[in-house]
Simulated assay, not measured.
Amino acid sequence: MFASHARARHAKRRRALPLLFLIAACLAVTFAFFPSARHASADSYPNCPTLSSGSTGGCVTRLQQDLDRLNGANLAADGKFGPKTRQAVIDFQRNYGLTRDGAVGEKTAQTLSNLAGHGLPFGQPSPANYPPTFDPAKAGTWARDNAQSYKSSYTKDPCTEFASRALAVGGMPQNDAWWDPADPVNRYMNPTGTSGPWVNVEKAAQYWVGRGWAREIPLDAANPNAAVMARPGDLLFFKWGGSDKTHMAMVTGVNGAVALKSEQNGGATPPFSRDGQWNLSYSHGQKPVAQVYKGIQATLLHWNEQPQ
């Protein structure tokens, strides 16, 4: 009796083996032909791996279509990542201040996604080197180290005064075009490196973007990974409920795929943020900024990668 049961169990195991081999083979095929199953990224190509020379398939086709629409690449959407597609990727990376490696990893893909999903910014000239005296990383370090202790002399809108002070410490050349003549302080920057408020932060953005020193990249305020391409010293600005409702912060680091920001906040509790997640409201704890301010627009002012 026990022998017959043993023979039956052995027969079941023999019948199960081909099924196990079939499952294993299917998994192997899945991982071989669909690399996204083992390397999915939370960017504009949700189930795509890093794309580079030799990549093929639907992800490449979508990339080529995006490059055609966003950067005038004039590619044939054939799903083959060849030399022309690689050069188009490098051109896009140059235009948006990204490392020009010719591969579409998380940062390049997310930038494409932001531009495709949240509208192209206003026309931008060819990128140029920002002034050699300016070190964005130095500005970001100052903002991180002084967010809690710095006391702005302009209490109404300390966010812009704080960010401009960080830029001054980083070596950004002074220029009266940065300040609005309606500003009662009547100076954007004085020789000591302090400043009055940016009455219109968009005007300041246009100053740098208009010279090709930086690029505007629209962000998804609800997506914590949308600013993954940010670097310390980049600027974040929020706009909601009309042109007079704006806020400026400085990127001070990146934690995984989430950019961190430091800032001064008039009327907020606490009145500063040090290395806070960029997509969270600066005055409403852990609530996403998109939930607090309906219709908010968030933009990254991204300094160009050096050298061009």
Rank of each mutant, 00 (worst) to 15 (best):
H10D: 13
A88I: 01
P232C: 03
H118M: 07
A11W: 13
V89I: 03
D78V: 03
I296L: 14
P218C: 07
T141C: 03
N255C: 05
S4H: 13
M1R: 10
H247Q: 06
K287G: 01
N225F: 14
V89W: 09
T194L: 08
A214K: 06
G72A: 11
L300F: 09
E305A: 15
V258I: 15
H5M: 12
L235D: 06
W198E: 06
P197S: 08
E161F: 06
A221C: 01
V258K: 12
G97Q: 03
L63R: 02
R211N: 15
C59L: 09
S149R: 04
A24K: 02
L51Y: 02
G212C: 06
A290M: 01
P288C: 06
C59Q: 04
F81Q: 10
M248K: 00
A163K: 02
V29N: 00
A214V: 15
C48D: 11
Y96W: 13
V199L: 14
N190Y: 11
R144E: 07
E161Y: 00
P181N: 07
V60L: 08
Q93C: 12
V169I: 15
R231A: 12
N255G: 09
R62K: 15
G171T: 05
A77G: 04
G267S: 03
Q277T: 11
V209S: 08
A259C: 04
A77D: 11
N146K: 09
N129L: 12
A205I: 08
S126C: 01
M229Q: 15
H302P: 04
G82D: 11
T252Q: 08
